[in-house]
Simulated assay, not measured.
Amino acid sequence: MSPGAPWTGPDAPGAMAQEHDAPHAALVDRAEAPLTPFPPDARTEEITRTSRTCVGIHKGGLGLILAHEDAEREAHVQEPRNALFRPLDPPLMDSYPLGV
């Protein structure tokens, strides 16, 4: 391939980004659902920004999760949840207790 030639095929950066966008958007949408009613006057862009941050925290912990096994892995799976849900306690915790 000559320098500066555009990439084609499934390994091209644009193709990889497009394949990443759909699952990432689905994760953000799923994270928005429990946040929508809290607080009631929140703007859509605030909820979306918070959801993206939540997804980023979980994605950031994947390396630690994959590097450990058994009980230690379970602890690393639970910790991002704890970090995200603790600030929402008590209003949200009645509906979404830790450990879920």
Rank of each mutant, 00 (worst) to 15 (best):
P6G: 12
G63F: 05
E69S: 14
G4T: 07
Q78Y: 14
R52V: 09
H24L: 14
T53K: 11
P39C: 00
E72K: 01
P34F: 01
L27T: 09
G56Y: 00
R43I: 00
H76R: 10
Q78K: 13
R49P: 02
A33K: 02
R49G: 04
T48C: 00
D41L: 02
A15R: 01
H58M: 14
D70F: 11
A71H: 09
T50M: 04
T50Q: 04
P34V: 02
Q18D: 15
L66Q: 13
A75D: 10
D21N: 04
R86S: 15
V55A: 05
V55T: 01
G4L: 10
I65M: 04
K59S: 05
V77S: 11
A83H: 00
D29T: 05
P23F: 06
E46K: 00
Q78D: 15
T36F: 04
R86H: 09
I57Y: 08
A71Y: 02
V77C: 11
R81D: 06
E79A: 12
D70M: 11
H20P: 06
A5Y: 07
I47Y: 03
H68Q: 11
I65S: 05
L92S: 00
E32M: 03
A83K: 07
P40N: 10
P10V: 08
E19G: 10
H68L: 15
T50I: 07
M16Q: 15
A83T: 08
I47S: 03
D29V: 04
R86Y: 12
P80G: 06
T50Y: 03
P87F: 03
P13I: 09
G63W: 03
R30V: 06
M93A: 13
C54T: 11
P90A: 11
E32P: 00
T8S: 10
I65E: 01
L88G: 02
D41Y: 07
M16W: 03
L88A: 11
G61Q: 04
G61S: 12
T48K: 02
E32K: 02
N82A: 09
L66V: 07
A75L: 12
P91L: 07
D89S: 12
I47Q: 02
D29E: 08
